[in-house]
Design a protein around this nucleic acid. Sequence first.
DNA 1: TTGTAAATGTGAGGAGTGCTCATATTTTAT
DNA 2: ATAAAATATGAGCACTCCTCACATTTACAA
Lengths: 216, 216
Amino acid sequence: MIEEQTPAAGSIEEEPGLRRTPSQKRSRERVENILSCAIRLIEEKGSDAMRMSEVAAMAGISIGSLYQYFPDKAAIVRTLAERYNAASRDCIASEFAKVTTLAELRCAFSALFDTYYDMFLAEPVMRDIWSAMQADKTLRKLELAESRANGCLLAETWARVQPGTPRERIDDAAFLIMHLGECTMRVAVSVDRPEGGRIVAAYKHMILREFVADAT
Amino acid sequence: MIEEQTPAAGSIEEEPGLRRTPSQKRSRERVENILSCAIRLIEEKGSDAMRMSEVAAMAGISIGSLYQYFPDKAAIVRTLAERYNAASRDCIASEFAKVTTLAELRCAFSALFDTYYDMFLAEPVMRDIWSAMQADKTLRKLELAESRANGCLLAETWARVQPGTPRERIDDAAFLIMHLGECTMRVAVSVDRPEGGRIVAAYKHMILREFVADAT
DNA sequence: TTGTAAATGTGAGGAGTGCTCATATTTTAT
DNA sequence: ATAAAATATGAGCACTCCTCACATTTACAA
C-alpha cells in the first residue's frame, strides 16, 4: 500500500530518458501504459505521424502528464529503442555464450541471424524506430554504440575460438559484421518474404566465409 | 533574349519532383539557386533543421515562389538525393565498364570504394540527405531502387567475368554487396578518419573474398 | 480526523513550423 | 498598346510540440 519513493539524489536511474524517475507503482504503470500506447500508434502510422496528443488521449491522460514523464517526443522513441536494443543484445549474448569452436561459432552466427530476422519480422515497430533514430543526431550515436557493443560480443567469442588472428582485425571486422547485420535485417524486412529470406541467406553465406581456419 | 517555354503536355520532364517544370532560363537558374542554398543550409544545420523560410530568404525569393517550384520540403531533399544517386551510379558504372577478368573486378571494386569513400567525405550533405531519406517512407523506396540499380551494375559485370556462377546467387549477392557498401560508407564517415579508413578496408577485405574462382 | 506539504494532474495557450491562396507584378503574344 | 498568361508575393491558416500557472490527489504527522 505505502510505497516509498526512492527520494534522494543518486538513486537508481531506471530509465535515463525519463524526466522524472517514476517512483510509485502507479507512476511506473503509467509509463508502461504510455509506451504501449506509443507502440500501437507507431504500428498504425509510424513514429513521425504519431502525435503526442494522440498518445495522451489513448493513454487516458493529459498532455501535461505525458510531458511529466517524457521530456519530449524523441524521449519516447529513445526509450523504445533502448528496449529493443537490449532485447537484441540479450539474444546475441545468449547465442554466443556457449560457443567454444570455430564450427560452433558459424553455427551460432547462422542461428542468431535467423532468430534476429524473425524478431524484426515480428516487431514492425523496430524498423520504424530505427528510421526515426537515423533522423536524429543524438539517437544515431545510440545506434552506433549498440553496434559497437554487439561487435564486442562477437569479437570476444571470435578471439576465443581463433586465438591466432590479430586482435585489431577481429575488432574492426566484428563491429562491421554486426553493424551490417542490422542493415541487412532492415532491407530484408522491407522487401517481400521470399526475397527477404534470400537476402538473409546471402548475408550469412558472405559472413560465414570469414569464420574459417586460414586467417588471411 | 526571347526564350520559349516548352509549352505543351508531354515535354521533357527534367526533374520529376518539381511542381512546375521550369521553362525559362531564369526559372531554371532560380531552381539551381534554391538547391545550392538548400545545400548550404543543410551543411550548416542539417536538413531537418533547415527551414523553408531560410531557404527562401537566402535565395532572395518569397516563400510563395519557393513553393511554386517545389511542392513541399521533401521535394527539395528528394531532388538533391536523386542528384547524388546519379553521381554515385556514374561513378560505379565507369569503374566497372572496363572490367574483363575476375582480378580486374577485384581491382575495380577496391578502387571504387576508395573513391566512394572520398566522395562521402567530401560531401557531408550526402549523409544528412540519406538520414532524411530513411525517415520518409517514399524516399526510402528511392534508396532501395538505387541499391537495386547499383546491384545490377555489379551483377552484370560479375556474371560476365565468372559465367559459371548461378545467376540468382549473383543477383542477390550483388544487391546486398552494393547496399551494404553504402551502409559501410555511412558508418565510415560518421566516425573519425583513421577508424573510418579501417572500416572501409575491412569491408573491402570481406567482399573481395566473394570474387574468387571457386564459386561455392 | 484533520492539516499541510509534497507529488502529480490538467489543458489553454505560446512559439514556431510547413504550406496556401487571393492578390500584385512581370512577361509574352498579338 | 493591350489582353492574357505566367510568375511573384507574404499575410495568415492549420497544425505541431511543448510550457506553465493552477487544480487535484496523495502521504503522513499532529
